[in-house]
Design a protein around this nucleic acid. Structure first.
Lengths: 112, 112
DNA sequence: AAATATACATAAGAAAATTAGGTATATAAA
DNA sequence: TTTATATACCTAATTTTCTTATGTATATTT
């Protein structure tokens, strides 16, 4: 796990990226997907995720579809067209930010 | 300029890196150096920097030397031995974090 | 039967930054 | 020469964002 301060500010970017790649996902699914694809190094907390999802819906970045799975409720999120543009911008911005930080901290990326 | 939320959490790492490379620097100098070497893309605000410097001194990460330059005061900061270890850790952690984010966001670093 | 996993949610508090203000000297421009 | 900009420090109120804690409820595994 990384120091939480590092992860700060990247939540929206991560959510938008996952939702552009996956058509629709529900909150809990997002937490599990991030945990899995980062080998547990990034773990989104529900206390941070849910309020952010609600805010993004309110802002028209995401839309929702509620479904009943058995007796449980499941709330799927999708990116709106507005959200798609924002997703691109956010990912590109993070990419550029990384380039800048690599220069500033004098670090090289691992080649894969 | 990057969205401020992106830069959040990186302030201490940036300060520690600069101070390990430069022996000693004063607050204003740090803001200018960062601005210059990122072509203005990262601009530290004094309201964020000074309280952080004070906190780091209190924690034994940095030590200070006050000097008079003309009629003005200048407060130089240096990393303590404790700070040197932390600087390494912080930079390595950010580096690892970037690797993780590159996988998660599916972005490649520019080769230089 | 109890513990863990799934799945949502909110609310109090902490942490970290922004914004805005304050003091003061030095230098460049109008 | 006065005004604006640059240098150089600082703090305080507010905002933003996250953590921690808690709550509800069903499903599944031990």
């Amino acid at each position: 796990m990384y120091a939480s301060e590092l992860i700060k500010g990247t939540l929206k970017t991560i959510v938008l990226k996952l939702l552009t790649d996956n058509e629709r996902m529900y909150g809990y699914e997002i937490t599990q997907k991030v945990k899995e694809s980062t080998s547990g190094k990034i773990q989104l907390t529900e206390g941070a995720l849910y309020p952010t999802l609600h805010a993004m819906e309110k802002q028209g970045i995401l839309s929702t579809e509620v479904e009943n799975v058995g007796n449980r409720i499941r709330k799927y999120y999708k990116v709106t067209p507005t959200g798609k543009k924002l997703a691109d911008d956010k990912v590109n911005e993070f990419s550029a930010f990384m380039e800048t930080m690599m220069i500033l901290l004098d670090i090289q990326p691992k080649l894969s």
